[in-house]
Design a protein around this nucleic acid. Structure first.
Lengths: 272, 272
DNA sequence: TCGGGAATCTCACTTATTGAGATCGACACC
DNA sequence: GGTGTCGATCTCAATAAGTGAGATTCCCGA
């Protein structure tokens, strides 16, 4: 779950924590800098770096610095090639040519977060903030919320218990009953509409299931807010729900090929 | 360097070796399967998995399996956003609109391998095998060879010593002198042309420098072989060399912004 | 609420990790 | 091609982990 800091001390943990330092603002680190940051000796720092370097997760950069390594790009390609959702959805989305659609995107549920895994720009004048790799909490944005609304009951309950405040802040319900009914309403509607993430656009998201009653992702169609009428919103909603349903249908009958040992869907884990 | 199997035993090494198992053909593993593969006990296997899971490099998949995790996609996004090469090259490539170009791609040098980091399809009828994330040895394919030809002397020498057989097989020279002259010829030509990787296309690659006399990547323009005349090859070569030069010029004057602590170029390491 | 299976915990035992300094070797300059 | 400069690795004793087998807990679907 990559977010809760553990107090367990294991050398692999500590080595992997080095990866956390490579943020957008600090993409390159020298060993000296890492030593200070990790509060470790030179030898230990070099050992951590070596482990990650040998795994290809780090690479040497200019000026005796280290940067994120080539293995990450390779693994990302592997995910894209082995993800049945993308394999099925991308060809289907290519056939969807309605001029109403300014952008199409797919978001996947990972643990208690939602990750954008695919973004396509159709309207060249649209300004997009969504990007493959962006992460959102389950309460924030239409792509997340429509997934949240379709979680199995016990997971939703657990999520509520652990995130009651965030849910209240997001106006999704002051109490468990409130929350449950608002989620029920979303489920009945079949889609979620909003401009939360990017105020210049309106996004409409529909759930994608990889198993009956097991949500795994959401499909979103986006359009510039200023040029969108209510009727168009309704039409977009129909389109996105229909497309998501088609993708779900295909996913349900998906059988891996080429020696693949099993399905590659992710399942949430809602531990508190 | 991610490829040479080490005989050193460290727990972090062993945990990270689990990642190697997640190939395209086996994208999902259960703990039982991992136990057999790693020849480890259940407890140990779970410990390895937990480390990677907590780091976000693995995620739970359907059927109590594990798959590659969301962190990889996030980190890939971070690389794309902090790589000065892509930041500079992509806007420049967007302006390059010659109809001769069927595809544009950028490959980066990592260690002694070359990784494709950007691929754009211009001609909709072209069949592309190149993809972001594909890795090639330095001797294989035009994008690699033009980089190889521009390595600093000591690195080229080291590479020759370590890879004399591969170099001979690739007809790049039977001896060090042979090799050196053939590389010299490539440098003088300024580009490398070939159809090695994908026999249905012709690709022309030019080197990109992030520092005078320090090659870091190559730019390739690709066109369907069957529709390409010799004159067009020459024109493409001119185009790609000119574009690569422009990118190099920009890279030389690149100064990071926004608190970035240093340059984010990768430098090769040619240890034998 | 309950059952089956996945994931974690416990503890004795074994083995790797750590830190300080010496040493090695890749790379740049001439 | 030779030589100097750090960046990276090695050495060794002391320390603190990792490991394995089984019991246990927890998750999640009915």
């Amino acid at each position: 779950m990559a977010r809760k800091p553990e107090h367990k001390q294991s050398s692999a943990d500590k080595a992997l924590k080095v990866l956390d330092l490579f943020t957008e603002d600090f993409p390159a680190w020298t060993v000296e800098m890492l030593m200070k940051e990790l509060d470790a000796t030179r030898a230990t720092t070099y050992r951590y770096v070596k482990v990650l370097y040998d795994a290809g997760l780090l690479a040497t950069g200019a000026g005796s610095s280290y940067v994120l390594g080539p293995r990450i790009i390779q693994l990302d390609r592997q995910i894209q090639r082995s993800d049945p959702l993308l394999q099925i959805a991308l060809p289907m989305l290519e056939e969807e040519k309605s001029p109403l659609i300014g952008s199409k995107s797919i978001s996947s549920l990972y643990g208690d977060q939602v990750l954008s895994v695919y973004v396509e720009k159709c309207d060249l004048d649209i300004f997009l903030t969504m990007q493959r790799g962006r992460v959102f909490p389950l309460v924030y944005g239409a792509p997340s919320r429509i997934i949240l609304a379709h979680l199995p009951p016990y997971q939703m309950k657990n999520f509520y218990i652990a995130n009651a405040e965030d849910i209240a802040c997001a106006h999704l319900g002051e109490t468990w009953e409130d929350f449950r009914t608002s989620m029920q309403r979303l489920r009945k509607q079949g889609y979620c509409i909003g401009s939360e993430i990017n105020p210049t656009v309106v996004g409409i998201s529909a759930p994608i299931f990889h198993d009956k009653s097991a949500v795994s992702a959401s499909l979103s169609y986006v359009r510039r807010l200023e040029i969108t009428s209510d009727a168009q919103k309704a039409e977009l909603a129909e389109l996105v729900v229909a497309a998501a349903d088609r993708i779900s249908k295909q996913l349900l009958s998906y059988r891996p090929e080429r020696g693949t040992r099993g399905p590659v869907f992710t399942t949430p884990r809602m531990s508190v």
